[in-house]
Design a protein around this nucleic acid. Structure first.
Length: 114
DNA sequence: ACAATGACTGAAT
DNA sequence: AATTCAGCCATTG
């Protein structure tokens, strides 16, 4: 597995319950702002990863549940979010801007930026 | 190697 | 604000 995938999983796992993040934000946090699609690809393969990845907390830049179809059925992702307190309406997070969790900008180790 | 696709995004219209 | 276009990068046929 590519290190990038693990970085994606590691960051997504840090998304607090009841909050959401975007593909682009994950990519930026990992230092590759153009890697949003790769983030999606990583999440596509996160099903068998351990510990489990809360991929349902990752939405697109408009707060839409673009990966809903990959949760085994309609409404599963939304219901999961709802179960965490995130209100979803018509495939979109309502208070998306308010619930957005800005990730800590972690560099590729090698020490922190200062 | 070429073309098409995709859990994306930003800019232009 | 909604839709369309183009860039992006990895995977797949």
């Amino acid at each position: 597995m590519n290190g990038f995938f693990r970085e994606v999983y590691g960051l997504v796992r840090r998304v607090p319950r009841g909050r959401v993040i975007t593909y682009g934000a994950v990519a930026r946090a990992l230092g590759e702002p153009r890697a949003a699609r790769r983030v999606g690809w990583a999440l596509y393969a996160c099903g068998k990863v351990e510990p489990p990845v809360p991929a349902h907390r990752v939405v697109d830049r408009e707060g839409r549940l673009s990966g809903e179809v990959h949760f085994g059925g309609p409404g599963r992702m939304a219901r999961r979010l709802c179960s965490e307190g995130v209100r979803v309406k018509n495939g979109r997070v309502l208070d998306f801007d308010r619930l957005f969790w800005e990730p800590p900008f972690e560099r590729k180790r090698k020490g922190s930026p200062t």
